[in-house]
């Protein structure tokens, strides 16, 4: 099976200069956990996830702690996210993005997702322009239905 057999031909994307707040709004309205970031020619230049925004909003020392459960409230988190709400999404997106082409084998998409621990991969054409996305759940459904090869 190929990526094209399973991918969703949806080219919803955000721009590098879209604000964090707008991107959160788009992800929330469309039930997306991440969205491709494109330039004006529709080339994929990054990928932003709710995780990237969450990471940018929690205090940096959190990474050093085993657990945050003993912290009394979320004031710091709320304060941080308010501070980055107008920031451009390009500041927090993953780049260069992991992308795949529609004629590649589906198993390659599965491999990329496991190795990079990601749920969604933008599908691009030969000019790196966005033509759709493929998600982990799409691959799992296809694998259960017909097998990956």
């Amino acid at each position: 099976m190929k990526v094209s057999d399973v991918m969703v031909y949806d080219i919803s994307a955000v721009f590098e200069d879209d604000s964090v707040e707008r991107v959160v709004d788009i992800m929330s309205k469309q039930f997306l956990s991440g969205v491709p970031v494109v330039d004006e020619e529709m080339r994929v230049v990054g990928f932003i996830t709710e995780n990237d925004i969450m990471k940018a909003s929690i205090p940096s020392y959190f990474a050093l702690l085993q657990s945050a459960s003993f912290l009394p409230d979320t004031n710091q988190f709320v304060k941080n996210i308010s501070q980055i709400r107008d920031d451009k999404v390009s500041k927090y997106m993953s780049k260069p993005p992991i992308v795949i082409m529609e004629d590649e084998p589906l198993i390659h998409a599965a491999d990329l997702m496991i190795r990079h621990n990601i749920k969604t991969i933008p599908v691009v054409d030969r000019e790196s322009r966005l033509i759709g996305v493929i998600t982990k759940i799409d691959i799992l459904k296809a694998a259960l239905r017909e097998g990956l090869e």
């Binding site: 969703v8 031909y9 949806d10 080219i11 919803s12 788009i26 309205k29 469309q30 033509i131 759709g132």
Partner: peptide, 16 residues
């Protein structure tokens, strides 16, 4: 729409 045809790519803006 996606079920009807894979020849239609979608790019909708979601509103409130």
């Amino acid at each position: 729409l996606r079920k009807k045809s894979r020849m239609v790519s979608t790019n909708f803006v979601f509103i409130r």
